[in-house]
Amino acid sequence: MRRMLLGWLVLALAGCASIPARIQANSAGLDYARITPFPDSVVHALRVDLQTVKLSVSPPAERGQAIDNMPSAAGALASINVSFFNKEYQVRGITISDGEAWEPVFEIARSPVLACDAAQHCVIELKPEKARPEWRNVMAGTPWLLDHGRQRTAEDDATCKNLCAMVHPRTAVGLDASGRFLIIALAEGRRPPVLGLSLAQMSAVMAQLGAVHAINLDGGGSSTLLLQGRSAMERPFNEPALRKVANALHLFAVPR
């Protein structure tokens, strides 16, 4: 397993200038790398073994907090921001936290989801209609990044210029072809010369990291990565503190 995970880091970093860093403590099943896939870019990448790392979406009761203040983040190997949200911290798309459905939600039909059951069998659905009974942790975003290996193009991004074609900090999740590994990537931005990535660029990064299905999550100032409780990303120049968000995805080591 260790050789396989280290091999992923080597493949992920092929052609990139940065050097990988591993999470050392209680990190079985989770690998991390800081990469530079494009000039003046910084991307934080994680590969998560769904057989040995537990996923948990923070509960509705914690909405409106910065991730480092959420009680549900205690003891997590890593935490990232998840949902798009409005001023009341209501979330976009189907969202479920350890079996607790979020209510109300908006834009269900146009918000693709990453959905996992209790056994952490996960799927990405690009056009969900309603939650399935077996789904236990679900997060939604928009738009798609990878569809059965098909990458976004600049032409795809032209249909949503401000969100898609412009460069921003980004957060994305995806699955590899086996469905065993969750791929996570977060791009820094809004701190010249590191401005961020377009969604077509983010799609290419996710494909490089081994994902075949992937969706875009909330980005911009919301993009947050905690590694063992500490912020791992440089913040936008105009927003140095972690932003209050609707929710987060936490990753926990499974006791052996």
Rank of each mutant, 00 (worst) to 15 (best):
S41G: 01
A241M: 14
H44D: 13
A207S: 14
G174Y: 00
C122Y: 11
M1V: 13
L9F: 12
Q120Y: 04
G219M: 02
I35D: 13
T36I: 11
S83K: 14
E100M: 05
L217C: 07
L77D: 06
W102H: 15
V105M: 08
Q90K: 14
A187L: 10
A45M: 07
M206D: 10
D147I: 01
F106L: 04
A12Y: 15
V123E: 12
D176Q: 03
P37H: 14
L77E: 02
N216T: 01
A165V: 14
L225H: 05
L6C: 08
V173C: 00
A109W: 13
V254N: 07
A248I: 09
K54Q: 15
E155A: 06
L249W: 11
C122R: 12
S79Y: 05
Q201W: 01
I184K: 04
A73G: 10
A118Q: 09
P59N: 09
I67Q: 03
G219Y: 00
W102S: 15
F85L: 01
L217A: 08
F38P: 09
L242F: 12
L251F: 00
A28M: 09
E88F: 08
R191K: 08
E88I: 03
S178F: 00
G179Q: 06
H148P: 08
D218F: 05
A115N: 07
C16S: 15
A200L: 01
V173N: 01
L55Q: 06
P37V: 01
L55T: 03
S222I: 08
L209E: 09
F85T: 04
V105Q: 09
N86P: 14
L249I: 08
V113E: 08
L209W: 12
A73F: 04
